[in-house]
């Protein structure tokens, strides 16, 4: 056997293995990706809501990406109450202005940040929401005040398309 031969043999095997491995990886990807959200699901990624009929002090719940979204038209009292809260009293400090760009409207995911239950409207010690699962209390800005939930209820990306229509997502 010459000196070159074993080298070439090794290269051949390494190349076969390497090319084969690439192929296996390429086959696995479609099998994984098929479980990701499909085209019809992604097409529903944003939703438009007509809020013209919501009266002050009322909340509507709409479904967005399979999750409930609370849209509350807040009363002046509620807005004032939310704005008066001191940052040091908050577990997860966020200003009300940052959560509700238009103070009259609070839009947030209606999901308790503890373990994913849907909190109840107009309940709890802080006039906002109360999660019946493990007793988390949220204030009129949807911020966590008492109980096991770690953070405030999440505000999704949304915008006012016009005075009466909110586009979520």
């Amino acid at each position: 056997m010459s000196d070159k031969k074993p080298k070439r043999r090794e290269f051949l095997f390494t190349a076969s293995y390497a090319v084969g491995a690439v192929g296996v990886a390429a086959v696995i990807w479609p099998l994984i990706d098929q479980m990701n959200p499909d085209a019809s699901v992604k097409a529903l990624a944003s939703t438009e809501v007509d809020v013209s009929s919501v009266k002050p002090g009322n909340t509507i719940t709409v479904l967005w990406r399979g999750k409930p979204v609370f849209i509350r038209r807040r009363t002046q009292d509620e807005i004032t109450e939310a704005k008066l809260v001191k940052m040091e009293d908050l577990k997860h400090p966020e200003k009300d202005e940052d959560r509700a760009k238009n103070p009259e409207w609070l839009v947030m995911l209606g999901i308790c940040t503890h373990l994913g239950c849907v909190p109840l409207n107009d309940k709890g010690d802080y006039d906002g929401w109360f999660c019946p699962c493990h007793g988390s209390h949220y204030d009129t800005s949807g911020r966590i005040r008492k109980g096991p939930a770690p953070t405030n209820m999440e505000v999704p990306k949304y915008e006012f398309v016009n005075a009466n229509t909110i586009k979520i997502g």
Binding site: P30, L31, D33, Q34, D38, A39, S40
Partner: peptide
């Protein structure tokens, strides 16, 4: 099987869903 629906009203449509919308569904 993760996308197919065994129901006489939905089976055909679920196969079309696989063919059109599911990622790589047509390939699989």
């Amino acid at each position: 099987a993760m996308h197919y629906i065994a129901d006489s009203d939905l089976a055909f449509a679920s196969v079309e869903h696989i063919m059109r919308d599911v990622n790589y569904g047509w390939l699989i």
